[in-house]
Design a protein around this nucleic acid. Structure first.
Lengths: 337, 337
DNA sequence: GTTGCAATCGTTATCGGTTACGTTTGCAGC
DNA sequence: GCTGCAAACGTAACCGATAACGATTGCAAC
């Protein structure tokens, strides 16, 4: 077994087996051209020393590593769903997965972080990468698939139909009788955030309700940023009767603030989110939201990447999946009516 | 910016800047011995080409990489909590995180998988690793911390107090009046699984209730394995009035089976789990379970590993955290009484 | 006996980056 | 002008593994 101290290398095995490292390599990789007696010797040495090839050394020399990467900035609640989808898609595929994440949460060099680490992985460690909600445009020498790309991005991507989803939400609120609907926007560089805002605008326009810029708050998907925004919205004389936040995390925070201010949800205020994270079902009242099946996004992104790496991808390079409105207790007819 | 095709290497930068790769390396690593004019030249070339150093090449040469690893077999519901804890602990620490996971879910070479990949990462890519619920004993040349280690393992580890947690569960059931309590065990190689079973036995013994081996089913933490086991338990003439499963995943499956068989929970059957995954709160009825704060396990494991890598760990090498009984709707006094 | 081919295995260049060491250059001091 | 020293920079070895290539051997066919 592998002992402490210096790790066992291929030359250790070669020395013990009395052969060259080339022969050891051939045995490890099951290549043609090694006699069965030599193979047995080498295998015995490998067993005795507990040798395992170094992923780093292998991937440096080889062009193909059979490892796919996933670059992500931080772990949110939806991340687990994405990962499950990715793993299921990669199951039995022969590809392993490396997830790279940095420790500098909301730190100074968030901008461009994904791009930098993508470059550090691709070409060597990984055959391709999935990038989750990048802060900006990303590109790479090896195949990539982006989940929730930046606006105007042309790289292969997988997204939910945020525009339709947001439209449905606002139509739902309009149908309940709401006319003053506040909106808490997400990080504006993301296409998803833009589409959700656009859906909000279009639904209002479609119903002939003018968009009041005062009712639009600019968040960045970080729940912590929401508290002052929600307070400002709800402290107004003509406060909205409903708030639509561009993510569940932000919506839950808004719901919390509403309670703090003594507002009853949904009596005094309806709240809607987007994502359908597990916590939303647990909230009191349950959060009405849009389900975008992060599992499916992860699954399809991985399937697509796998094909891109193998060079046999036939489908479109940008895929959009439908969403589903999930109505829970946080929305109702406004009490004033 | 990084163009498609072959990635930009250090020698590309060196050629463009008219210096040697050694000089580029010194600039990149902010080493002493480069004039400011040369530094500027090199930086300009780096900027122009969009160069990023290769993580692989760097880690092959260097002993220290400032990357910690986390090796995990598959993504369960609790995994996200662990990851959040790990990331929070690593926040602003200067360590990045690489999560390595294989695609061969429940595949043929599950046994020893962690050990193999630990060896492939440590010594090169990572400075140390966290291993989550390994199938067997693991060891490594570089520091490791195991979450839920194998039985009898002596490596640094972080665990919940499974023994006390399980004891509390069974005492809760006993207090409700249950006497025939079924147990669905977990993967027996894990210390956690053993401790949960031992807690079950001790609590029964403490109450003077004999342990009926017929009421103990051998699962492996995989929910899919539970269906036949639960059916067998509940089809018995003298079926138990309560079932305690060693994990929430298995408990939820048992709950599903009970419903299938027309049993009312908790009227006809009480069900308890262990872990407190998010789904447990959503189940109908809510699942009574034991909270072991996977977030905290992840957080402390990362903190410990960080210190081990830096060589300044002072605490004990095996840490046990208390658990908390969470009572929901799935447990009640048995109807027969 | 010689040639040819295939099987077997070692040698060596190589991947990209780091670093020990050696060389060159510049400058001050005598 | 020469010496001494340090700063600046290049050269080459090296990390561990792979693969092209060459060298050796065995065996069969002519």
């Amino acid at each position: 077994m592998a002992e402490g101290g210096t790790p066992v290398t291929m030359s250790d095995v070669a020395r013990l087996a009395g052969v060259s490292t080339a022969t050891v390599s051939r045995v490890v990789n099951r290549r043609y051209g090694v006699s069965s007696s030599t193979t047995a010797q080498v295998r015995a040495a490998i067993e005795q020393l507990g040798y395992e090839s170094s992923l780093v050394a292998t991937s440096l020399r080889r062009s193909r590593t059979n490892v796919l990467g996933l670059v992500i900035h931080s772990f949110q609640s939806y991340t687990a769903e994405v990962l499950k989808g990715v793993m299921d898609a990669l199951s039995q595929s022969g590809f392993d997965l490396i997830i790279y994440s940095n420790s500098d949460l909301y730190g100074t060099y968030a901008e461009g972080w994904e791009q930098r680490h993508l470059a550090r992985l691709s070409g060597t460690l990984t055959d391709g990468c999935i990038v989750v909600t990048p802060w900006g445009e990303v590109r790479s020498g090896s195949p990539i698939v982006v989940i929730d790309p930046a606006r105007g991005s042309t790289v292969p991507s997988v997204t939910a139909d945020n525009l339709a989803g947001a439209t449905t939400v606002v139509e739902h609120l309009l149908g309940l009788g709401h006319r003053r609907i506040g909106f808490i926007a997400g990080r504006s560089s993301l296409a998803a955030a833009w589409a959700r805002e656009e859906g909000y605008r279009r639904a209002l326009a479609g119903a002939g309700v003018p968009v009041d810029p005062e009712l639009i708050a600019r968040g960045d998907f970080n729940p912590e940023s929401v508290a002052p925004l929600a307070r400002a919205l709800l402290d107004r004389e003509d406060r909205p009767t409903a708030i639509f936040a561009a993510s569940d995390g932000m919506a839950l925070k808004a719901l919390e603030i509403a309670k703090e201010l003594g507002l009853h949800v949904p009596g005094d205020l309806s709240v809607v989110g987007f994502d359908n994270i597990p916590e939303s079902a647990l909230a009191e009242p349950g959060l009405t939201t849009v389900d975008q099946s992060m599992y499916r996004l992860g699954y399809e992104a991985a399937r697509m990447l796998k094909s891109l790496v193998c060079g046999d991808w036939e489908g479109p390079s940008q895929i959009v999946f439908p969403t589903r409105l999930v109505i829970r207790g946080s929305t109702a007819t406004p009490r004033a009516l």
